[in-house]
Design a protein around this nucleic acid. Sequence first.
DNA 1: CGACCACTTGAATGTACTCAATGAACGTGG
DNA 2: CCACGTTCATTGAGTACATTCAAGTGGTCG
Lengths: 242, 242
Amino acid sequence: MTVRQDIHNSSAPVLCQACEARHRGICGALDPDQLVGLAKTSLRRRIRAGAELVGDAEAVDSYANILSGVVKLTKTLSDGRQQVVGLQFAPDFLGRPFKAESTISAEAATDLSLCSFPKAALERMMKEQPGLEHRLLRQTLRELDEAREWMVTLGRKTAAEKIASFLLLIAKNIDPARDPNARMAVFDLPLSRGDIADFLGLTIETVSRQLTKLRADGVIQIENNRHFVVENIARLEARSGS
Amino acid sequence: MTVRQDIHNSSAPVLCQACEARHRGICGALDPDQLVGLAKTSLRRRIRAGAELVGDAEAVDSYANILSGVVKLTKTLSDGRQQVVGLQFAPDFLGRPFKAESTISAEAATDLSLCSFPKAALERMMKEQPGLEHRLLRQTLRELDEAREWMVTLGRKTAAEKIASFLLLIAKNIDPARDPNARMAVFDLPLSRGDIADFLGLTIETVSRQLTKLRADGVIQIENNRHFVVENIARLEARSGS
DNA sequence: CGACCACTTGAATGTACTCAATGAACGTGG
DNA sequence: CCACGTTCATTGAGTACATTCAAGTGGTCG
């Protein structure tokens, strides 16, 4: 582990030294020279929570890696009903290759730090380094698995189970350094009640009621609306419908 | 169009001559020599409707292309609740690369004709032909788009809208030769009422009631439970919530 | 202090579900 | 050929869960 990091960092651009995408993200496919090449055209950007990254049916000319923060992917029906169709965390790749315009919109759920680079730069590099496309395929397959997992939640779970499943999802993804076997979890929710409702296919009121119930039952503690403490994750899992 | 087919077919294996996957599927990435190589290890299989192709958490050692028929991908909760998380049509690729076992189960919704080949053969070929991985990435991205589109349907549409959306989905995918702008559609449903319910996150009874309503309103005609006629697709679209 | 925002709580309503009975199509065996 | 069982779909009545509409709470900021 430490060895691998040493090797990777030895000649990597400064920008990439502390970057998760360098290891777990798509940049892990690049050799030091290629990394330097991509880093030349890349740019670190900070985005405020709530800012729209990509609007529906909007042309996209750059891709990015998430360095920190949470991105919310949404789709909206003509009458305004909204559905969150995905959440992305560091070090996920952000963008939809091979399509001029996106059919979903992306929004910063929290403050973000991105490493962004021109669409053309990545596509050029994909040609000379097939490993890049391989990484992309892996992430896409993972996202597909997640989307299908969520379809089960949306289609077949009760409101109470949806909320428990959601809290588990956040607990497991919000902190990359977290021990996956830990018995307890503490985190700040990256989403408002409204966002959660749109993610779970519920209303704000139902989300609020179910959270209140979990708190009343002693499964979770809530401070300042956003800060959550889960003493015993197993109790949440028991309520998630698995 | 005819030119392209001539070129492709000139030296292609007999098995591949009439195969949609040769053009629109993943095999389109292969040159004639490679196609011959893959065809050597591949096998045409016929499967009866209802047969299970891949069980949940079951090891998979072969991939396949769908030549004809419809495959149903499902996930099941511990208490038996089931959700259909995807439908695949010819000439889709079937299988989950880079993972020893699948977390979903695949079942023949209709009688199937498959072109199946060993996992190892395809993975070997992917190394020497990056275009193959590219095709796979494209299909995966398309499936991801479809899954997200369906998340909106599951999370935010009413039962009536879900049914209309489902009928549109089938009308557009069941017949590869169909004119996408055609005003009317005629098709045999590849799924039972129960399957539809599992796809839409509804019960059988609700599916039945909504279909009856569409028929009563003159939007669709139903013969023998499975055969559907849609005189005016626009009327269905108007009810799909878009 | 008042306005605003996000969230919570309450009461009434409605959509889809559950349970139950009926109907239609198909295959088997007497 | 018809009676019978089976499977699949439809229809009906009553119920439950999440929604809608409405009011209230708590925190933040000008």
